[in-house]
Amino acid sequence: MIKRIFADTKRCNGCRICELRCSFEHDRVFGTKLSRIRIIMNEEKGEYRPNTCRLCYKCIKACPENAISKNEKTGAIKIDHELCTGCGKCVEACPFNVMFLHPIKEKAITCDLCEGDPQCVKYCPEKVLFYTTSQEFKKLTS
């Protein structure tokens, strides 16, 4: 069974430490718009929803350069930046708005599951994020 990142959204407090861990892991700098996980914020309601790749693979089909593939080990999306032209077709195709163009490199980026050790999950202070199977997640939060 494939493991994905799940969030117990009710408890997310919007600290966005996950976004910073992500940008640091991938670029060694700190910037929320470099992050592959993004918190959708509704401050009026105090509701914060971590949003990242669900592994639906629609981007693979959408890429005209065959730059996107599946990581055999983790099932994560793999993007070859040598081939990626930054055309944005995958961004349009993503139903969850979790494919982005890197603001500096101008190449497509999305969650790569940190080779099976997602840093956002590891450092979430509220333990809101889980890297697990959908069945396990259901058990954990029911």
Binding site: K10, C15, I17, E126
Partner: peptide, 17 residues
Amino acid sequence: KVKSDSCFACPIHCGKY
């Protein structure tokens, strides 16, 4: 209290909703 409501990059999250 409903839940915590944190400042950016804060592990303490003393803010509450």
